[in-house]
């Protein structure tokens, strides 16, 4: 599409410093996001999706280090910014909807105060202005502002809370919105509703979205591009149409075969055998090899490089490497 790239992540490595040693939760990940697109990031729970999002926002827990790589936002490397400079970008330019939607709001203060404090924290002290903005976004999200704003979190349903979080993340009309598993904690009907609202919002505002999920079916529904992560590594990326029509990486294939078929029979859903490796002592070679049905000798010895098999379609797997 040749659009403007608003975010470029290059060779990003993030380690959690644990008692047992460093845990590489994001390991040498590179990708870019074009303006106005919805980029889906998919992978089993524990693949490092949330860590990736928090690294972009520079909001990692205290015992974490970014060891390598850059996060270029409009040509500025966020990794190198001072905390003060980062504060100008965080929430105003790049904002985030957290994973734990049901418990992300302070139970002892009203919804309206969440908006006001968020505004205050970023230098907007005009209460009226903040509330006006909140009302405007809430209407777009089918929330009744009068009722919701003056209520407490526990008075809202899961779907309403999720929408409040989305509204909170949008009060500065950010250029990039990162949604971390926005539908995971919700029932199927509400999931549907939230997805439709996000699509609708995207249609109206043309903002850029990074959509994180562990459910590959949702990606097919909402995303333009997809990034498949496993154990902190990028496995495959490309535009959704190409990747879904012709998945290359064995892990992507496995994820796709776990989608329930059209009859929706949950019992037929296959989960991938095995489980995520111990990231502190990862397997040698290709990190997926203990679970990979196609693994061969070389996979155990050497790590496969990321190879662009078609423009924009990248796969990290020895099956597609010419070396």
């Amino acid at each position: 599409m040749g659009n403007e790239r608003i975010l470029e992540v290059k060779n990003l490595v993030v380690h959690y410093l644990t008692a047992r040693g460093p845990l590489p939760a994001v390991n040498d990940v590179s990708f870019s996001i074009e303006k106005g697109r919805i980029v889906g990031v998919v992978g089993e729970s524990g693949s490092g999706k949330t860590t990736l999002a928090l690294a972009i926002l520079r909001q990692l827990p205290r015992l974490t280090r970014i060891y390598k790589g850059s996060v270029m936002f409009h040509g500025i490397d966020l990794v190198k910014l001072s905390e003060k400079e980062m504060n100008e970008i965080r929430w105003k330019k790049i904002s985030y909807v957290p994973q734990a939607a049901l418990n992300a709001l302070n139970p002892t203060i009203k919804i309206i105060d969440h908006f006001i404090e968020t505004g205050n924290a970023h230098g907007i002290n005009d209460k009226k202005l903040i509330v006006e903005k909140a009302v405007e976004i809430m209407k777009m999200l089918n929330l009744e502002p009068e009722r919701v704003l003056y209520g407490y979190p526990h008075e809202l349903s899961g779907g309403m809370k999720q929408r409040v979080l989305i509204a909170l993340s949008m009060i500065f009309e950010p250029e990039l919105l990162i949604l971390d598993e926005p539908t995971t904690a919700l029932d199927l009907l509400t999931q549907r509703l939230i997805l439709d609202l996000i699509k609708d919002l995207h249609r109206r505002t043309h903002m850029t979205v990074m959509f994180i999920t562990h459910d590959i079916a949702t990606i097919a529904d909402i995303a333009d591009d997809v990034i498949v992560m496993y154990a902190g590594k990028l496995m495959e990326k490309g535009d959704v149409f190409t990747v879904f029509k012709n998945p290359h990486h064995p892990y992507t294939k496995a994820l796709m075969s776990s989608i329930p078929d059209l009859t929706g029979d949950i019992n037929k859903m296959r989960s991938i055998p095995g489980s995520l490796p111990d990231l502190i002592n990862p397997p040698s070679g290709c990190i997926f090899h203990p679970r990979c049905p196609y693994a061969f000798e070389k996979c155990k010895r050497e790590e496969p490089p990321a190879v662009e098999i078609k423009p924009g379609h990248v796969v990290s797997c020895w099956l597609y490497s010419k070396q």
Binding site: Q59, P98, Q99, A100, N103, A104, N106, L168
Partner: peptide, 26 residues
Amino acid sequence: GEDYITYAKIRGLPSRRILVSYIGKN
């Protein structure tokens, strides 16, 4: 350990606000 603390930090709330109305109050 609650999620709303993490989220408050991510939203960039000043630590005094987090200490008083988030941690303290709850």
